[in-house]
Design a binder for these strands. Structure first.
Length: 915
RNA sequence: GGGCCCUUAGCUCAGUUGGUUAGAGCACUGCGUUUACACCGCAGGUGUCAUCGGUUCGAGUCCGGUAGGGCCCA
């Protein structure tokens, strides 16, 4: 069988067929010859390849694709690249587990290294069992694993039908991206926005890296308040005339050797007299002052707290604002430092410290509690509490604070002017939905410091600077050596500094390379610059930047969105995009956020295969931007039904119009037939009404899409589509067939009655519009139908305008279809109630119609009779008919007045065939 | 503690600037295999619009309080 239009339509298998065809024809290939105002550019989120894609990704990426397809049909050249975020810690961690290795930068590179495991997914290999490898070997494994992931990701996205230009993919770790990240960094360095600073930094002891404010999260942890006595120093004893101890309560007794002061609220009457006087720390005997500060809580514990360098971020604030000394006791490995702070001078103090040195925070705490107990300075039993503790969002040990040299980029956290500028940028950005802008504003206004971008990790973009070594071999941190922009990307760990050669590395008078890499957001924040060709393709950049759309999740407004705005503001002085489309979460049926850890084994590919991509896309498109949606396979079944309906009703329309007959000969003949059929005059009131209604639907859908409300657009089209199928098609079937016998092929060019020609033209025009309206959401089913009688892809066909349908409708009132539909409904109900087949003829009946609809029903009377197989029908004014004085057959409940303004059509005096 | 969002039918959700009798789909029940469709069609019932108060001729809609849920930030 060579027929173009299948006998039995199916949505199965459309994905592979059309993806191949689209790729071959380059349907989604970006045409860079277009002008700026013809281009719509999208800053697609690069998914993290170290995880797997889940249902939430499918959800939000579909939203973007629906927008992309709409814009493309509106005639814009869509710039729609796809990237992979293979940068950073998640990849490192996955590589460690997958291959059973860990990075040791001191080791030499090993050619042809074979990792001990492959595919250790899920069962994490203990750190002790991981084989240490060189940084280069480690990075190679990262690249190897991410390449495999990226293939799988692309396959999924293609199957889902994302209309991405697959010739434009990028990786956040690839050299070009690194070069962009480094160039942006160097420009910020030159302008003074990037700087290094020795400062207390939030530190993850597991990963041994600094952590930025945006990566923090609070978790409730058990802790215990220990009530510890501090003895008064001489000045305090003199002032109060007593030798009573001051009791503080602390959850971190192990930081006692790091204590630099006690602090109480300035208004606290209990402690007011003590401010400025001193106490001695127990065991260690260090004299520390009692100081006032507004952040001390009078109602927490005893109302007076010890300040240590550093137990938490409040300690940092106190330390900074009160200019206290620094007595660090914690190392980068989370263990107590070997050497006691200089302030500890007593023999007992030094001995006690020696017992703690080298211990983890946990064991040091146990030991010091014992020591304090032995010394008799602990009062009572520890009080167990639950309190919020800061964690790195990817870590599982509480963050510590250590002092180290780190790189920062200004983000308004320490500069009110910059902050105000960034808030203003946020206000100028079109957030969809608008209230998401509040999250941005809250975040910017809540910043407490600049953006810490350096990380002590391995797989990432190196910070592109070197440092001279003085004659003693000490690095000159203040005057970094920078590379030429043309030489980017560079790796200071293996490339020699400009003006030096490799033999001078690490020797006095030579240089050393910066060993830190950048935070992954330092690269991701530049995705517009990466995809638009900021560095190496200025012509493309001018045409695509600032971009039109940034789609992303609500959880990364404070990170990705904000940091992108920062970079664009600093480098280009503009917003990076006009619109930010924020997708919601996918929730379990039990309203919890869907997560892998909960053992949800719904894989996206499985879903697509079970329901079909169009169906899954329909489910996603049914949820508005910014709104959380339930994971609902029922909704996918509805989408599948819609896609099937599109195929089937298309088969009907093409059959009844005769286009099928012609198309079975050749595509050219089919196209000619379609043009011929739809050019006929639309004369019948019902046909005109249907097209008039359709014109309004097109208008509404277009309006909704322009406002980034794809849900409304879909709903509007869908609702009218079902009316079209259920009512209009049923009403005009007979007329369109024009007396053709069962199974007889219809010749589209043969003469037919004007009524039939009118029906066929309307059917053809409507089908064409519906296919285009659904194309963004159901790209496969619509393309399939389109291919039966059109050349090229529907996805490059113009979005419908109301003009064509409106012209054919000739100002008709859409109400005719509504009224006629209500009438056929009544006829069906009669047969349904009488439990007879819908084919049963009605010999005669009176149709009671409200006066307002008389004209409409009369206009479609012949179609109504044909659809209901009615042999004789009287259309009667309902008000007249129910007047008992007319025929005595008014409603038995006497509800005459209720029917006076009735909008429903009723029937009376029905005689069914055979009754 | 602060900010934002949400609460409408058994379920998932619409409901625009206040305006007749608050809607859709699913689920459920009944009927029907009709020359597009059984992966089907048709027909049918379904409500304390969380709650209390206010504004108004009129409130699901606007304002305030309360309760519950969610997210973000302290």
């Amino acid at each position: 069988m060579t027929s173009r239009i299948p006998d039995k339509a199916t949505v199965d298998g459309l994905e592979d067929r059309w993806n191949d065809a689209w790729e071959a024809a380059g349907v989604y290939r970006f045409d860079r010859s277009k002008k700026r105002d013809e281009i719509y550019s999208i800053d697609t989120p690069p998914p993290t390849v170290s995880g797997s894609l889940h249902v939430g990704h499918v959800f939000s990426y579909t939203h973007t694709d629906v927008i992309a397809r709409y814009q493309r049909m509106c005639g814009r050249e869509v710039f729609y690249p796809m990237g992979w975020d293979d940068n950073g810690l998640p990849t490192e961690r996955r590589v460690q587990n997958y291959y059973g290795v860990r990075c040791d930068p001191h080791l030499p590179y090993e050619e042809g290294f074979e990792p001990p495991y492959a595919g250790g997914e899920g069962k994490s290999i203990k750190a002790a069992d991981q084989v240490p490898v060189s940084r280069r070997n480690f990075v190679e494994l990262c690249e190897q694993l991410t390449a495999e992931d990226e293939k799988q990701f692309e396959a999924l996205w293609r199957h889902l039908g994302l209309s991405v230009d697959w010739s434009r993919t990028y990786q956040t770790i690839e050299p070009a991206s690194q070069a962009v990240a480094q160039q942006a960094f160097l420009r910020s360095l030159a302008r003074g926005e990037a700087y290094q600073s020795e400062a207390p930094t939030l530190w993850d002891v597991t990963f041994r890296t600094a952590v930025a404010q945006a990566e923090l999260e609070d978790r409730d942890r058990q802790g215990a308040y220990h009530r510890v006595a501090f003895e008064p120093a001489a000045d305090l004893e003199e002032a109060t005339g007593s030798y009573e101890s001051i009791y503080i309560e602390t959850t971190r007794p192990e930081l006692l050797p790091a204590c630099v002061a006690l602090v109480a609220h300035p208004d606290d009457e209990r402690y007011k007299p003590l401010f400025g006087k001193h106490v001695r720390t127990p065991i260690f005997g260090v004299e520390v002052p009692i100081v006032p500060h507004r952040l001390a809580s009078p109602d927490k514990g005893s109302g007076i707290a010890m300040i240590c360098t550093f137990g938490d971020v409040t300690d940092v604030i106190w330390w900074r604002e009160l200019s206290l000394p620094t007595r660090p006791v914690l190392g980068w490995d989370g263990r107590i430092l070997a050497d006691a702070p200089d302030a500890i001078e007593s023999a007992e103090g030094i001995a006690a410290y020696a017992e703690l040195a080298g211990k983890t925070v946990f064991s040091a705490q146990q030991r010091i509690v014992e020591l304090l107990g032995e010394a008799g300075v602990i009062d009572g039993e520890p009080k167990t509490i639950t309190h919020p503790v800061k964690f790195y969002e990817k870590g599982d040990k509480p963050l510590e604070i250590v002092t180290s040299r780190q790189w920062y980029i200004a983000n308004g956290g320490r500069d009110a002017n910059l902050r105000a500028e960034l808030v203003a940028r946020g206000e100028a950005l079109d957030f969809v939905p608008a209230h998401m802008g509040k999250r941005y504003e809250n975040w910017v206004n809540g910043l407490t410091g600049d953006w810490l971008i350096s990380r002590q990790r391995f797989f990432g973009v190196p910070i592109p600077v070197w440092y001279r070594l003085d004659s003693d071999g000490n690095p000159e941190w203040e005057t970094p050596i920078v590379p030429d922009e043309a030489s980017l990307p560079v790796d200071p760990a293996s490339d020699a500094a400009p003006g030096f050669d490799e033999s001078q590395r690490g020797i006095p008078g030579g240089f050393i390379g910066e060993k830190d890499i950048m935070d992954t957001w330092a690269t991701s924040s530049l995705t517009p610059q990466i995809v638009c060709g900021w560095r190496e393709d200025p012509e493309l950049f001018a045409k695509t930047f600032p971009m039109d759309l940034r789609p992303q999740g609500q959880d990364i407004i404070r990170t990705w969105l904000f940091s992108s705005v920062v970079r664009s503001h600093l480098e280009h002085g503009v917003l990076p995009w006009k619109h930010a489309a924020i997708s919601g979460w996918i929730l379990d049926p039990d309203r919890k956020k869907m997560s892998k850890s909960k053992g949800n084994v719904v894989t996206p590919m499985g879903l697509l295969e079970t329901h079909g991509s169009d169906a899954v896309r329909y489910w996603a498109a049914s949820a508005r931007l910014g709104t959380d949606a339930a994971f609902d396979e029922g909704q996918m079944k509805i989408g599948r039904r819609l896609a099937m309906k599109v195929l089937n009703v298309s088969k009907f329309v093409l059959g009844a119009t005769g286009i099928t007959t012609a198309a079975d000969d050749s595509l050219e003949a089919g196209m000619k037939a379609a043009a011929h059929v739809t050019s006929a005059a639309v004369t019948e009131p019902l046909d005109k009404a249907t097209l008039a209604g359709l014109a309004s639907v097109i208008e509404a859908a277009t309006f909704a899409f322009d406002a980034y409300d794809h849900t409304r657009a879909l709903e509007t089209a869908e609702q009218y589509f079902w009316t079209f199928c259920d009512d209009y098609v049923e009403l005009v079937k007979e007329r369109a067939y024009d007396g053709a016998a069962l199974g007889e092929p219809i010749d589209p060019f043969a003469p037919c009655s004007p009524e039939a020609a009118s029906a066929r033209a309307a059917l053809g025009i409507a089908l064409d519009a519906f296919l285009r309206l659904f194309a963004p959401v159901l790209p496969f089913a619509t393309e399939e139908v389109w291919s039966w009688f059109n050349e090229g892809s529907i996805h490059r066909a113009p979005w419908p305008t109301p003009d064509r349908t409106r012209a054919a409708a000739g100002g008709a009132n859409p109400l005719v279809l509504v009224a006629a539909g209500a009438a056929v409904s009544q006829l069906r109900k009669i047969k349904s109630d009488a439990k007879v087949s819908q084919r049963t003829a009605i010999v005669s009946l009176d149709l009671l119609v409200p006066e307002s609809q008389m004209e409409s029903v009369n206009a479609a009377k012949a179609d109504i009779m044909a659809a209901g197989r009615v042999k004789s029908m009287q259309v009667v004014d309902a008000v007249m008919a129910i007047d008992p004085s007319v025929d005595g057959l008014g409603p038995e409940d006497g509800s005459v007045s209720a029917l006076l303004d009735a909008t429903v059509v009723r029937t009376e005096n029905v005689v069914l065939e055979g009754a």
